[in-house]
Design a protein around this nucleic acid. Structure first.
Lengths: 215, 215
DNA sequence: TTCATTTTTTACCGTTTCGCACAAAAAGTT
DNA sequence: AACTTTTTGTGCGAAACGGTAAAAAATGAA
């Protein structure tokens, strides 16, 4: 049994929601352009407290990325669990992603694009940990989409084929993030994602989800 | 008539190829993580000379972006001028982009992705000039692709439709840049781009280029 | 040679950066 | 009340940052 009541001076901040604040600073300014003073001001803490709780600036950034990836996956998984059929599910997922990218989600209130796609690439070549983190985000997206396609097609689509479609969808999603970061209109991005899903999935319609659409 | 022979001490560097070197430093490290000392070392010049010739760090970066966009457009335009039919042309363009992104082009020797897509997004929210530059790059890509589709379809595709397809292709292209920056395999990326083009364009095959494929 | 002009070079300025001592403060424990 | 433990606040310090002033060097013109 560990101690239930801690010994020393109590913290005046919640670690989880402080990490949320840290994440938002990185989300807005990227890694290199973010200073610890900015983070200190945004969280109301001073640098030694931050360092004690989260480690170095790099540690904070990687923890923010992982946290973002978790939130993002939950957000999209939730959005993709209502409609029926790959096409409709993917449209919902893309629309939810655009909401998140353009600040209509609860994660942040501004049009920041995807934290990982917006901030990791510029750092990826000077620190292999960042490049690896970026690769992990991509892989997570690929496998998530591929699983959705495989599960929904009930064996009508081979695994290699599903992986390919999943990567096509991921390519489009990351392109959407770039455009959101450039300040493009949310509704326009949603229309764009919807038509892209139609083109990328409807070609496989006969093999995928005719059952769902003509029950 | 202006003076043909300049008056003062002659420069010991060529402005054009020096800007190429500057561009490569930004391409590798991004904007914020690049220091003027790094640029000075890469070019063999010292900071005052750089400042006199190219202005501030921000000026150098924006000039690098514009230069890259010009080079990129020429590179892709050239690649898309050999085959016949939208599908084949777009595949060639995508393959040429992957070559450029993975260091097989003459512009650089390493897998850096797209300079604009890799480095501008992380800075776009703190400086509206950077966000504007990003938007310009996207617009240039969109209109370039749309023009190719319109020209190749000979009136069989309405302009709004062509714009939409062009944006789909641009979304995919930017996704490819992210993946190149993450270090993914060039051949894998080319296969991915080829199948994506097939899916995005073959749906319009009857309206687009049946003539070209069944002459 | 002497002067005017332009570039290079050296050196510096004020700021900001990140990480970390060090001591004060706030709690539980004895 | 005295001690232990943990966090907070102040502040340092060595380095890096972007930008520029001032001097030295290299050319053409007079």
């Amino acid at each position: 049994m560990k101690t239930l009541t801690k010994r020393g001076r109590p913290r005046k901040f919640d670690e989880e929601q402080t990490l949320d604040l840290i994440m938002q600073v990185f989300w807005q300014h990227g890694y290199s352009a973010t200073s610890l003073d900015q983070i200190a001001e945004a969280t109301g803490l001073n640098r030694p407290s931050l360092y004690a709780a989260f480690g170095t600036k790099k540690d904070m950034f990687l923890k923010s990325i992982e946290r973002f990836a978790d939130r993002m996956e939950a957000h999209l998984r939730d959005a993709g669990s209502r409609a029926t059929g790959v096409n409709a599910r993917m449209k919902d997922i893309m629309a939810a992603a655009v909401d998140l990218y353009t600040g209509k989600s609860d994660l942040t209130g501004a049009a920041h694009g995807c934290l990982a796609i917006s901030t990791l690439p510029s750092e990826a070549l000077q620190d292999s940990d960042f490049q690896l983190a970026l690769g992990n985000v991509l892989l997570r997206m690929d496998t998530g989409f591929a699983r959705l396609i495989l599960r929904e097609s009930k064996g009508a689509v081979r695994e290699a084929h599903a992986k390919e479609i999943a990567q096509h969808l991921a390519l489009v999603l990351h392109g959407l993030s770039i455009r959101a970061r450039a300040g493009e209109n949310p509704e326009k991005l949603k229309r764009l994602s919807s038509s892209a899903v139609d083109r990328l999935i409807s070609a496989q319609a006969s093999a995928l989800s005719d059952d769902d659409r003509h029950p």
